[in-house]
Amino acid sequence: MASYEIEIILNRQLADCLSIPVFITDTAGNLIFYNEPADKILGTSFEDTGEMKVEEWSTIFKPLDEAGAPLPPEGLPLVNTLSDQLPHHKVFWIESLKGANEKISVTSYPIIGRNGKFLGAVAIFWNTQDT
């Protein structure tokens, strides 16, 4: 079995130590890890789901703009990072599991390994309670 690159493994280990939700994907957008604080957003745990295909986990989110209209995928930071291998940041709303709209900010960054190879991406969800 081929193991993940060290850069991916170390990102997971870091995510495991953080109290903010972190999602890690491969280069195709498949969710290969999310930490415990991310459980609340997905409504499930990594221990239960394991890895999730991009088409599976992307439907869990319902990203909305300020007016409550659905955001297209190309408006999302992680999608942009997977596309252009650059960091992105955006504030938007998601429909929570309870049905309420929650304002969040998301920072995504590419994992570029030592040899300059694009290995995957990380999205960090920040709680946004002000403006």
Binding site: M1, A2, S3, Y4, I6, I9, R12, Q13, D16, C17
Partner: peptide, 13 residues
């Protein structure tokens, strides 16, 4: 890491 050696082959350096 916080959980030590993981039990999944692809997550083991």
């Amino acid at each position: 890491g916080p959980k030590g050696l993981l039990n999944e082959a692809k997550w083991i350096s």
